[in-house]
């Protein structure tokens, strides 16, 4: 169940990033921080939107993990929180 919903969250994040960058090609492994896909405000807005939409909460220290700056990694982290 948890993994089934990873795809849903991946799609949600991808759609959010594409809303800010129409023409770029991104994949699940894209790092939206390092690749400059989102500006500072859009990054903050993404995290807050995920927290509110999927009813999860991130601690800042968790986001130091670069894996969580990729679409797949962040989606997985959201799903992991449901079961923890």
């Amino acid at each position: 169940m948890k993994n089934e919903r990873v795809g849903e969250v991946v799609e949600y994040i991808t759609s959010y990033i594409q809303q800010h960058n129409d023409d770029i090609s991104i994949n699940d492994g894209s790092n939206f921080v390092k690749e400059g896909l989102l500006d500072s405000f859009a990054i903050l807005s993404l995290i807050m939107t995920l927290e509110s939409e999927f009813n999860v909460k991130f601690k800042p220290i968790e986001l130091a993990n670069e894996e969580l700056q990729t679409i797949k990694g962040l989606a997985q982290a959201v799903c992991n929180k449901w079961s923890s």
Partner: peptide, 14 residues
């Protein structure tokens, strides 16, 4: 703090 951590790699207390 989450932005500081993600953009600048700074550590926070929590």
């Amino acid at each position: 703090d989450m932005l500081r951590v993600m953009l600048y790699g700074e550590q926070t207390d929590e």
